[in-house]
Every structure is written in structure tokens, then in C-alpha cells.
Write a protein that binds this DNA or RNA. Structure first.
Lengths: 197, 197
DNA sequence: CGGGTACCCTAACGATCGTTAGTTAGGAAG
DNA sequence: CTTCCTAACTAACGATCGTTAGGGTACCCG
């Protein structure tokens, strides 16, 4: 029996609804209905609809950032100075976060556009910083000849788009287990970048 | 001076607005404002908001399908029986359609969820058929040893997600010309699949 | 000149939106 | 027993939603 705050329950069902119908396509009353409660009742726990979106997006962003931190520092220990292993660790971490909570991750990937200007800019900044981690590793890999010559910015973009696509079809109850998805995608992404041998 | 029907002008601005704010996040009056017209005036040209969405999605789907038809039959002539060239042609055709009208393509990629059940199912069917073309070529490539052993369904999914990501950032007025984007992505996608040499 | 066509207007409809206000029920803590 | 907290309720607010009705103006073709 897991203790779960009412606030967290709201964000959980909101994640799923936002994922399925989008932020604008989901009303406060839709969220409330999924919790068998009146729409107005939610305002005892949240201050606005956008606050719910922000909480979800912010938490997801933090999860991606922390997982990348851990992946990079871990790769630096086990394979110091190896850009290929570093990128592989980043890719795996990204897929892991994605599959651990698809709803949250989907909202992070797609619904940040619905945020107000300030919060949208803040998230755009964090997304950019996050993407740079991938780009830098690709640049490093090219520098040491492990990765093929290509445009690192485009490659990083393509890579993250490919991974984020998982969020649109992944089902935790589906046939394909999360770690197998991670394995396959790490393989595809590395092959995409590695210099021909 | 290009003759453009009023109906087409509506769909054009609707594409851009749907791309930026989503279908649910765009009101009829938003579309009308972009045309310097009152909201109700649109109903002289359009029977409902969803009809506009459907027109955009249907047209985009048709463009993707026709481009793939042309690419495959052309590849069959220039490089008969070569699954690598066939896939390369499919990838290039997909990127071309995507960049020729980003607004329309974006709506096709993301906003079909907002359609009513019947039309949504129809589009899902067509998307699936379209995706199968990529998957079959990947399977063919694996069968002849040109592509690495991998899960063809996952690979096709990853490939299309990677390409569709272009729709979220591509700007026709930006620095990167469309054909260079196509070149880079064909290269990345083939490398992703090709067996190590 | 007359009739049609293309286009847009104002006004309003019922529904739904996010949100506020005020109230009630139940249980824990003093 | 009183007090407080949590969590829910009903009712309503002004705004906006998609859409309909009915009328008006400018231009093209005969």
C-alpha cells in the first residue's frame, strides 16, 4: 500500500491525459473525472492548470538531467575518455527515463509549448543544455575518429528525435520490455554514428 | 501573382497555427484573425473545424504516399532489386515531403489524434501501411545481408521518428537548405542500418 | 441594366472553459 | 468537546468555444 499524496495523484492522471489529448485538449474537469471528483475540487490541491503542467514538465526535465549526470560520471569511471561509451551511456539513460514514466516524459517532449513565455523559455534553455551533452560527445567521437564525419548538431537532433519517438508508442504492459528497447536503440544510435570499419 | 482559393488559404494558415499551438489550442477565431476576418466568416468556406484538420491531414498523407510510390518505382528502375537504394529513396522522399510543407507535415505527424474516431482509424491504417513500406525494405536488406540483424519493426519506427523530428525545428528560411538536411539524414539512416564492413 | 456569385459582416445560440466562493463531512490532535 | 486539517461538495462568475442565422457589398457576365 503505497502512500501517495493527492497532489501526486493529480499529476499522474494529468500526465496520461495530457499525453493522450494534449494540454489544451484536456480540461480540468477531465482530470477531475479521472479521479472521480468534481472539477472545482482540484483547486484545493493545485493553484492553476498551468501549474500542473509545469510540475510535470519540471520533474521530467530534472529526471532526464539527473540520469544524464549519473550516466556520464559513471561512464567516465568505467571507460575514462571514451566518447563512444559516454554516448552509449547517455542514450541508455535517456531511454530508461523515457520508459520509466512514459506519461511524464511524453508531456516533457511535446507539451512544453503550452507553458507561458517565462517557463517555456526556461525549459527551452534546459532542453538546449541537455541536447548539448549529446552533441559534445558526438564531437568528441568525431575528433578521435570513432564517429563518422557528420554535422554534430543534426546528428544530436536526429538521435534525440529517434529516441523521443519511443514515448509515442511505448506501453509498459506491452510485449517489448524496456531494457530490450534500450538495447536495440543504443545499438542503432551507435551504428548510426560510428565510422565505417 | 498566384491564384489561391480562399479555402486553400484557410488550410494554409490553419496548418501553421495547428503546428504551433495544436488543434485544440487553436480556435476558429484564431484562424480567422490570421486572415483578418471574423470567425464566423470562415463557415462560408468550411463546414467545421474538424473538416479543416481532416483536409490538412488527408492531403499530407496523400503527399507522403505518392512520394513513396514515385521513390520506390524509380529506385526499382535505376537500381532493381537493391533494398539499400530503395530505402534511401524512401528516406529522401520522406524528408522532401516534410520540408516542402512543414506545417502540413507537422499536423499530419502530431495532430491526427484530434480527429474523430472514424477518421482517426482511417489515418492510423494509412500510417501503418506507410510504415510497412520502410519495414519491408529493411527486412529485404537484412535478408540479403546488406543491413545488420536487428528488429525491423523497431528500426522502422526509430527511423521514421528520427525523420519526423525534422518537422519540429525545420525552418524554410533557416540556414540549412532542405536538400542538405535530406543528404545528412539519408546518410545517418543508412549507416544506422548497414551491416558493419 | 439585372442577376448571380464570392465574400464578409453583426448578433447570437448553447456548451464548455478555468477559476472563485462558500460550505460540509470526517477524522486526528489538543 | 473543541479545534483544526484534509478533502470534497454545490453554485456560480465571466470568457471563450464551435456554430448558425440573416443581411450586406462589390464585382463579373449576360
Amino acid at each position: 500500500m503505497v502512500e501517495i499524496s493527492r497532489r501526486q495523484a493529480i499529476e499522474d492522471v494529468a500526465s496520461d491525459l495530457f499525453r493522450e489529448h494534449g494540454y489544451a485538449g484536456t480540461s480540468i474537469r477531465d482530470i477531475a473525472r479521472a479521479l472521480s471528483v468534481q472539477g472545482a475540487s482540484l483547486y484545493a490541491h493545485v493553484t492553476s492548470k498551468e501549474d500542473v503542467l509545469w510540475a510535470i514538465v519540471d520533474r521530467a526535465a530534472t529526471r532526464f538531467e539527473r540520469a544524464a549526470d549519473a550516466a556520464e560520471s559513471n561512464a567516465e569511471i568505467t571507460h575514462p575518455g571514451d566518447p563512444v561509451e559516454a554516448l552509449a551511456a547517455l542514450v541508455r539513460a535517456h531511454v530508461d527515463v523515457l520508459t520509466q514514466d512514459v506519461g511524464e516524459a511524453s508531456v516533457f517532449v511535446h507539451e512544453w509549448r503550452a507553458l507561458g513565455a517565462d517557463r517555456r523559455n526556461a525549459i527551452l534553455q534546459r532542453r538546449d543544455t541537455y541536447q548539448q551533452r549529446f552533441r559534445r560527445r558526438i564531437e568528441d567521437g568525431i575528433a578521435v575518429g570513432a564517429f563518422a564525419m557528420t554535422d554534430p548538431a543534426i546528428a544530436a537532433n536526429t538521435l534525440l528525435s529517434a529516441l523521443n519517438g519511443i514515448a509515442t508508442w511505448y506501453d509498459p504492459a506491452g510485449r517489448m520490455p524496456a531494457d530490450r528497447i534500450a538495447d536495440l536503440n543504443v545499438d542503432l544510435m551507435l551504428r548510426m554514428l560510428e565510422a565505417s570499419r
